[in-house]
Design a protein around this nucleic acid. Sequence first.
DNA 1: CGATCCTTTGAGCGCAGTCAAGGCGCGTGG
DNA 2: CCACGCGCCTTGACTGCGCTCAAAGGATCG
Lengths: 224, 224
Amino acid sequence: MTEEEVEGMQRFKVGELVVDPGTPILMEGSNSPQLFTALHGMGLRFRHLENGERQVINFVFPGDFLGLQAGLMGEMGHSVEATTKMTLCVFNRSELWSYIRADPERGFELAWLAAVEEHFLGETLTTVGQRTALQAIAWAFVRIYLRVKACGNGGDGAIRFPFKQKDLADALGLSLVHTNKTIGILKSRQLIGWTGEEVLIHDLAGLAKVGLTTVSKPKNRPIM
Amino acid sequence: MTEEEVEGMQRFKVGELVVDPGTPILMEGSNSPQLFTALHGMGLRFRHLENGERQVINFVFPGDFLGLQAGLMGEMGHSVEATTKMTLCVFNRSELWSYIRADPERGFELAWLAAVEEHFLGETLTTVGQRTALQAIAWAFVRIYLRVKACGNGGDGAIRFPFKQKDLADALGLSLVHTNKTIGILKSRQLIGWTGEEVLIHDLAGLAKVGLTTVSKPKNRPIM
DNA sequence: CGATCCTTTGAGCGCAGTCAAGGCGCGTGG
DNA sequence: CCACGCGCCTTGACTGCGCTCAAAGGATCG
């Protein structure tokens, strides 16, 4: 989300909300009357299977819009939960329509947001479906690093990543044990480091090579 | 896509295009000057990994919009290819903006389309990441059946499904051999039949149970 | 200083992948 | 008319990546 968009949405904000780690923000299947933009902190989007298995859809970073599906379709396809303490910008779902009507470009903004999500989900699906565990985890660190750096945090090769190995495992469709051992391989190859809430990317190009991916600069929304 | 939306878009159509089976329609990474709506026939959306592996993102049925990512982001995240002979409604990408500007609801329509795609991709991701092969294939047949029935074709338990087992395998991140054997299990349990281009759903409820999913009616776009 | 949560490591198993070969339907050409 | 090739489906044997079970460190906290 560009700064102008954040700016524009601020006019529709109802207030700010600060939530503690572990707080559910949106529930799968629900039709929340409120939508959010993440201002600080990090979280998780995920779905549950009937047998209790969890699929992490992606990680939530500052700037992410939460509740687009509820706003557009009337029902969330996944849940959102805070992993760290988070502060959220709150909107009323009922005002989304007036937001769109105010300027035709607003609808375009939302469509663009959804399209970006779709694009990323397609890439994730390809990872989970086709990459090996080693490739998938290498890919994930490349994506996460680029995503975090894009929102300003983490200048050099270090980023804050307050998630558990189980979260990454659930994001990639792997077991915790196998994820742990595979991370160990990447560590031993001097490609990454991960201690506590800090991840070190020692060799981005090497990681990208292992992960069968390329490091391209993220594109901004085109002005039509 | 509702009939009114199709109606609305028809005004922006440049013409119709008929393509033969196997024809590439959109290429991953490209910025096609043309966007399409599928009118007849079926196709595939897919991505390729650097090692040549293919992930099928989903199946294209009549009514699907093709090229939304190119229109909104300037670059496709996946390729689209015709599986059968297809007829497409053609639009100019450059007119997308005037289409949106004509009516604020237009932007909403596009955002809604993208959100529906995102919703479905999240469900697919959960399948590939968390369901076993048997559960995944059962889930896939439930989704496909509901999707095909939603666009009018296939009244009773029979639908036209002109895809190969390899296509389904690539959609679920499974090997062809294992997919074949797993389909055999579903056949022997009298849940489905699959001969040539026809799939028979003998027991939708039973399939849904195996696939750890529920058969709920699809929701229409809410009128805000 | 026990309790709890997370990470790490080892052992063994099994689901799904790979390799290989055969069957079947269909179109093509001798 | 039949032989042949080709694409796709089917089946069997074997392999191995990743899962499960289990237990042992560390770190943090009341």
